[in-house]
Computed example of a mutant assay.
Amino acid sequence: MLITISGLPGSGTTTVSDLLSRHYGMEVISAGEVFRALAKEKGITLAELGELAEKDETIDVQIDKRQQEIAATRDNIILEGRLAGHMVPHALKVWLKAPIDVRVQRIVGRENTFFTKALGETLEREASEALRYHEIHGIDINDLSIYDLVIDSDRWDQFQIFHILSTCINTLMDKGGEPPVDMS
């Protein structure tokens, strides 16, 4: 089974992916990890690769291609990343959402920074990514219609989200392990 967990920064994708991974024994392939590996291969910092990605769309394309290659050659994995659902159409696709103030507060908590600084950086990052996704792939990151499930991580905590997702995953596994075919 392939599962994608996507969402904006601070929405809880890493936490939920880790809970599912531990429970189901599935490996998590994070777009962030792919990004870090690419930076290491190029011998540059994450910030330098981020700046390079804003000027060179082949960076994003490389990361997306690596996720697609991983999904095509392996099974029983969780792909975590903003565009993972778009890169692997045959997966169970999940989007986690939360209001910007909630997401920024989570970022503040994990990065030990100030709210206003984190808010500005998050809004800038999201605007940059949204522009790149649209220019490179024609993807509107705010269009959630491709996702099988959209869950508000402000309404439910990570354990409740895990319970919701495990119910869905177990149901799919009982039906042969694959998400239903879209008949539209």
Rank of each mutant, 00 (worst) to 15 (best):
K65T: 07
H134S: 15
L149V: 07
M87D: 07
S6Q: 00
I59S: 12
I63T: 06
K93S: 01
E129M: 14
G7D: 03
T113N: 12
I78Q: 08
T14I: 06
Q160M: 13
L149A: 12
E41A: 07
E135Y: 02
Y133T: 13
G50I: 01
G81V: 04
K175P: 09
H90Q: 07
A37Q: 13
Q67E: 15
N76M: 01
I59W: 10
A130F: 07
Q158V: 10
H90F: 05
P179S: 04
E48N: 02
D56Q: 12
L165I: 02
P89I: 09
V16M: 05
E57A: 13
H134F: 13
L123C: 05
G32K: 00
G43V: 08
A84W: 02
I161Q: 01
F115I: 01
I63P: 06
T116Q: 13
R74S: 15
A71D: 08
H163A: 15
G12H: 06
Q67P: 13
V150G: 03
D182H: 03
T4Y: 05
L92W: 04
L149Y: 11
F115G: 04
H86P: 02
I164R: 01
R36H: 06
Y147F: 13
D152M: 02
L20A: 15
H137Y: 15
L165Y: 01
H90M: 06
E124S: 12
L119Q: 08
M183V: 09
N76V: 02
Q105H: 12
L119I: 11
E121V: 11
H134P: 09
I5Y: 07
K40I: 03
D154S: 12
L131D: 14
E129W: 11
T58E: 14
T171I: 04
M173T: 00
E124A: 14
S11Y: 01
L144E: 03
G109F: 00
T45Q: 09
N142T: 08
L96Q: 02
D157H: 11
V34P: 13
G43D: 12
S153T: 03
Q158W: 09
E57W: 11
L52M: 11
E135A: 08
L123R: 06
I100T: 08
A71I: 03
L49A: 01
G120Q: 09
T58D: 15
S145P: 11
R155P: 08
D157I: 10
V28N: 13
D154F: 10
Q68A: 12
K97I: 09
P89N: 12
V150M: 09
I161P: 00
V102W: 00
S153D: 04
N142F: 11
H90R: 07
I78T: 06
S30T: 09
I141L: 15
K42L: 09
G176F: 05
K117W: 04
G10I: 05
L92D: 00
T4W: 06
R82Y: 10
L49Q: 01
E41V: 02
H23N: 15
Y147H: 06
S153L: 03
H86E: 01
S166D: 10
K117I: 02
A47N: 06
E27H: 13
L79K: 00
G176N: 03
W156K: 13
D56K: 11
N142Q: 12
K55W: 01
R110G: 14
V102K: 00
F162R: 06
A118P: 15
T116R: 14
E33Y: 05
A71R: 04
R36D: 06
Y24D: 11
K65V: 04
G10Y: 06
P89D: 11
D152V: 03
K97Q: 10
D182F: 04
A98N: 09
